[in-house]
């Protein structure tokens, strides 16, 4: 078996596939035949299949997260955020969206970025709908830690 450098290295256009969706068994034997390596590789679809509102409910119950439902995704918060400017993977608007709609796959992928928030509160100053996104970041962080 060849030495693997990177998960799913055989995939053409590898950049388009997230690590979390690649299943690559160390050893795969089917009917006595060794199918390890590229034969056993499985790429899961990235289709959103369901909504999970459990985190959303926790955020709404948090004293600083209760206005999350006001958010209409204008992106003013992200535009004002000094952290997002440095690291585009941290995006307060987006975090609010995936929590609100309960997109499990996306939360798995991006949820932990919430801890990049510096709590400077600039987003909350510019939010036109009084969501207090800074508070919502805190509430999301708490909900993610507490989620069973």
């Amino acid at each position: 078996m060849s030495q693997r450098k990177k998960k799913g290295e055989f995939i053409v256009e590898r950049n388009y596939v997230d690590d979390q969706r690649i299943i690559e068994p160390e050893k795969l034997e089917i009917g006595g035949v060794d199918m390890s390596g590229r034969w056993g590789l499985l790429v899961l679809p990235r289709t959103i299949e369901d909504f999970d509102h459990s985190l959303h409910a926790m955020v709404k119950n948090h004293p600083r997260g209760r206005n999350i439902d006001r958010c209409w995704q204008c992106g003013n918060c992200t535009a004002a955020c000094p952290v997002a400017e440095e690291n585009p993977l941290f995006n307060p608007r987006y975090l609010i969206y995936i929590i609100k709609l309960g997109y499990k796959l996306e939360i798995e992928k991006f949820g932990n970025y919430v801890y990049f928030c510096g709590s400077c509160g600039r987003c909350s100053e510019v939010c036109p709908k009084d969501v207090d996104p800074s508070g919502v970041m805190e509430a999301i962080g708490t909900a993610l830690r507490r989620k069973p």
Partner: peptide, 10 residues
């Protein structure tokens, strides 16, 4: 869903 750049089947 154009805000998550992803297809959905729900």
């Amino acid at each position: 869903d154009t805000l998550v750049r992803g297809p959905f089947e729900v």
